[in-house]
Nucleic acid binder design. Structure first.
Length: 415
RNA sequence: CGGGGUGUAGCGCAGCCUGGUUAGCGCACCUGCCUUGGGAGCAGGGGGUCGGCCGUUCAAAUCGGCUCACCCCGACCA
């Protein structure tokens, strides 16, 4: 920790109006470069990586294959679908040295469809799901709440290609399930809400919303069957019960595109009967940084962040009360290497600062488990384990720290 | 883009109304001492184009004009 670049702040910067933004800055996870443009510092980057990896794993399990598309797009492709004009000033445009139109990709339907029309020739190549985790650019009218709505942001986007509507719906279902698993694994409470599909187009779509009281999104839930509805409804059709309002943050959106892009871009394949048909597409996005922000909105207290285990920058933080005390230091190191060998991701606060300082900072950063090594308990050969997630503190014998953590971990990951 | 607000040291702020020594305070930073279970204490120190430009004036952080940046409320979104 003495080497970790995590500049923390005691006070909240004046521009931060929401907790997630404030805590991310205070915990030294992000820094702003310009309106809606941020640098991720090591702690923030670790969270981004954690979330990305969960997303990546689930996309792979659902049959997706990872690719990486360019952020810089030739304007022609966008003119082909008409979105060069439709998208408006949100699309960041520029010209290259030969005066050719380019833009920075806010989404990748045009690019993936171009790839598909060149490479997918036969129904034998279908179904196909390709995805990437990459930086998107949107010149938002009003960037807001730090990383929550930024002009440059990290997004996972997956595109599915099928031979017909029925198969496309199967792909859609797969992704729907995969999204549920992603947010489950992130330790977040979420809702899948049917939604309007907006500029991206298509028919059926669902928004994935992280439940957080500070969220901007209003969702209506049936208290009986727990089904979520978009705004405007009053009663659940099945249960005939009045709906209750909750709030949340949209972090994912899945769409059935159909032939919206394949038709104008002439992305055709030859079907079994020899006839030429447009590819039937779906697209599926998750805002990685937004998920990070939403996780904080949903999990924090007065002291700071309370990361869910699976997306925390570290799993365990060891806090030696006095780094100069030889016995404390030695024990801390011992525990550190033992737990490291057992596969935990940990950090040790080996700085020569007062205990109170370490405590406050640990609470702010929000690592789920703190192991406090102090003189008093060490006399009894035990350690204090503080669970940030629920505030619980327990005394654990040094020799049984391994098994104790196993239990704690199982508990935290399950809930 | 319309409406509102803020720019003074890395962060948080005072000073501005009523112009006038060397621009202050807290935190952070550096040195030393001290301290080590909840962001300690003492002593010393470094760091400033007062967002920028133009103007008024003997004199501008302070008054006027323009401008830029950032934040908040609205349409939009992952």
């Amino acid at each position: 920790m003495s080497e970790l670049f995590a500049p923390t702040l005691k006070e909240s910067p004046q521009e931060a109006e929401v907790v997630s933004h404030s805590y991310m800055i205070r915990a030294g996870m992000i820094r702003q470069l310009s309106s809606g443009i941020y640098t991720f510092l090591p702690l923030g980057m670790r969270v981004i990586e954690k979330i990305s990896n969960i997303v990546r794993e689930e996309m792979n399990l659902a049959g997706g294959q990872e690719i990486l598309m360019p952020a810089m797009h030739p304007g022609e492709l966008w003119k082909e679908t008409g979105r060069w004009d439709i998208y408006g000033p949100e699309l960041i445009r520029f010209k290259d040295r030969r005066e050719r139109d380019f833009c920075l990709g806010p989404t990748h339907e045009e690019i993936i469809t171009d790839l598909a029309r060149r490479e997918i020739k036969s129904y034998r190549q279908l179904p196909l799901m390709l995805f990437q985790i990459q930086t998107k650019f949107r010149d938002e009218i009003r960037p807001r709440f730090g990383i929550m709505r930024s002009r440059e942001f990290i997004m996972k986007d997956l595109y599915s290609f099928d031979r017909d509507e029925a198969d496309m719906e199967k792909s859609y279902q797969k992704m729907y399930q995969a999204y549920c698993k992603v947010f489950d694994r992130c330790g977040l409470e979420y809702l899948a809400v049917p939604a309007d599909s907006g500029v991206i187009g298509g028919k059926i779509s669902h928004e994935f919303i992280i439940v957080a009281p500070t969220g901007e999104e209003r969702i209506l839930i049936c208290p009986e069957c727990k089904t979520a509805f978009p705004e405007g409804r009053e009663e659940c059709e099945h249960c005939k019960t009045p709906l209750e309002e909750t709030r949340g943050i949209e972090v994912g959106h899945i769409f059935q595109l159909g032939v919206k892009y394949s038709e104008p871009m002439r992305a055709y394949f030859v079907d079994q009967d020899g006839s030429e048909k447009p590819l039937v597409m779906g697209c599926y996005g998750i805002g990685i940084g937004r998920t990070m922000a939403a996780a904080i909105e949903a999990n924090h207290d007065q002291q700071g962040i309370r990361w869910p285990w699976s997306i925390a920058p570290f799993e365990i933080e060891i806090i030696p009360i006095n780094s100069k005390e030889e016995k404390i230091r030695a024990t801390s190191k011992e525990i550190y290497s033992q737990l490291k060998d057992e596969g935990y991701e940990l950090i040790i606060d080996d700085r020569d600062v007062r205990a109170g300082f370490k405590f406050s900072e640990a609470d702010l950063i929000g690592v789920p488990v703190q192991i406090i090594v102090g003189e008093k308990l060490l006399k009894r050969n035990s350690l204090e384990v503080k669970i940030r997630t629920n505030g619980e503190r327990i005394e654990v014998e040094k020799t049984s720290i391994g098994s104790a953590l196993e239990k704690i971990k199982n508990n935290l990951v399950r809930t």
